[in-house]
Design a protein around this nucleic acid. Structure first.
Length: 431
DNA sequence: TCTGGGGTCCTAGGACCC
DNA sequence: TCTGGGGTCCTAGGACCC
């Protein structure tokens, strides 16, 4: 058996933790750039605020319903996430816990017997809430996919389930599958849901569980689809995974806070994103051998706009901000055209290898002393540890000059809460 | 006026190898 | 006349996830 522990309305719960007066009140958290709603408290859901809607469209509704809103504060969420995961690891043992996302973890219960599972799930929920203040839901099932389903049902009917549900016997599983639309299953996205309904009249989980593996292979993405229907039938086909420590791709992309026209400003933004991406790279002790940049121009009537991108392979893998920066600015200069209003830009690092085992370039001078890693380490330490002050507190203290000083293009973040748990200067005060 | 960001896995098809 | 079989690596693109 597997369990999945999932934090309830995670970002909203994090915000509420430090503003207790918002308990039981409607709260939403916005995406970067204060663009759209990405987390809603139960009360906000009841007020009719939809997931993913643009902020400007619901602004008056929020006001009218007295919904509190926050810009996103990823540093805070990241730290609280770590506390939740650490609680699970302490309770269940590190080896059983697979962190799946910022607010979810699978737990391997394979050798625990099935009698006491409900009690265990309940105790997990209680312990996490007691230790971290974050409420979670726990779903248990024979496979990851069925555990996800259990979790979903537990959340839908909190009063009755107390946020815990165990799907273990065939009858309960069938009932659960029958009342779940295909599109609500883990692994069925919008495209497949539509196809299943329109072309084959498959509407619920039980119907989907009855299709042949061949059908799944042909129509639902090959082995991925096959695994999915096996999971629905209770045959574990998505195993527990080792903790992934090394990412295979690292991206930093942002919308601008306003339209941007000049190459100068685009370059500042790209420089800032490169610095951020390189920081992520160094944190996992890696180096990147491929670098791509893109910029997106605003296009009347189109949500997405037209995009321009450029790509380079580095002479040798690097995690040096200066080296990556130089290349990135070259790339973006080559694709920039004067005229359009740009609204978004991004940097992607690929070809990621461990920094220690870097492949030296054929042309590298082996005696060269151009290793700036001590400098990078110093920069990272300063940026991470020093308290930030003044209005510019979202920024790093040490930056490369290429990232600019005015930075009018920066994303909007009108109401970001304090980083209560990770910055001394921003500790909550008790009066 | 204003619509996020960061990932993963899989497949098909071409180039190339012995 | 007869023209194999089994691989690997790479890339682009599609689908999904939170």
């Amino acid at each position: 058996m597997k369990a999945i522990v999932d934090c309830n309305n995670f970002y909203c719960s994090c915000e509420r933790l430090f503003v207790p007066t918002l308990d039981q009140k409607p709260v939403v958290v916005l995406s970067n750039n204060d663009g759209c709603v990405i987390s809603r408290s139960d009360e906000a859901k009841k007020s009719g605020v939809q997931m993913g809607v643009p902020f400007f469209e619901v602004r008056s509704l929020l006001q009218q319903e007295g919904v509190a809103w926050f810009s996103s504060n990823y540093e805070l969420y990241g730290d609280l996430s770590w506390r939740v995961m650490e609680t699970l690891r302490l309770m269940m043992g590190e080896a059983r816990v697979e962190v799946y996302s910022v607010d979810e973890a699978f737990i391997d219960l394979d050798d625990l017997g099935t009698e006491a599972l409900a009690a265990l799930a309940l105790s997990i929920r209680e312990r996490v809430e007691q230790w971290t203040g974050i409420r979670v839901s726990v779903g248990v099932g024979p496979t990851k996919t069925l555990a996800k389903l259990a979790n979903r049902l537990a959340k839908k009917d909190k009063l009755h389930t107390h946020c815990v549900m165990v799907l273990s016997d065939p009858v309960t599983i069938e009932t659960a599958l029958r009342k779940t639309a295909v599109g609500d299953l883990w692994g069925i996205g919008r495209r497949y849901a539509r196809k299943l309904q329109e072309e084959w009249s498959i509407y619920d989980g039980w119907q989907l569980a009855s299709v042949s593996e061949t059908f799944a292979h042909v129509h639902l993405g090959g082995v991925v689809g096959k695994r999915l229907i096996r999971e629905l039938r209770g045959i574990p086909s998505k195993e527990m995974e080792e903790e992934r420590t090394q990412k295979k791709m690292i991206a930093t992309t942002r919308m601008f806070g306003r339209k941007v026209y000049s190459l100068q400003e685009i370059k500042e933004a790209i420089a800032t994103y490169v610095a951020r991406a390189a920081e992520k790279l160094r944190r996992q002790y890696s180096a990147a051998s491929e670098l791509s940049v893109f910029i997106i121009a605003h296009e009347e009537g189109s949500r997405y706009g037209s995009s321009f991108s450029n790509y380079a392979v580095m002479d040798k893998p690097s995690s040096d901000t200066a080296v990556l920066l130089h290349k990135a600015l070259e790339l973006v200069t080559a694709i920039y055209q004067q005229g359009p209003a740009y609204k978004k830009a991004g940097v992607l690092l690929g070809g990621i290898v461990p920094a220690a085992a870097r492949q030296a370039s054929l042309f590298e001078n082996s005696g060269a002393t151009d290793d700036r890693s001590p400098l990078m380490l110093a920069i990272d330490n300063i940026n991470f540890s020093l308290p930030l002050q003044s209005a510019a507190r979202h920024d790093s203290i040490l930056r490369f000059a290429a990232s600019g000083t005015n930075r009018a293009w920066k994303m909007k973040q009108a109401r970001r809460s304090a980083r209560y748990t990770t910055r001394w200067r921003e500790l909550p005060e008790a009066h």
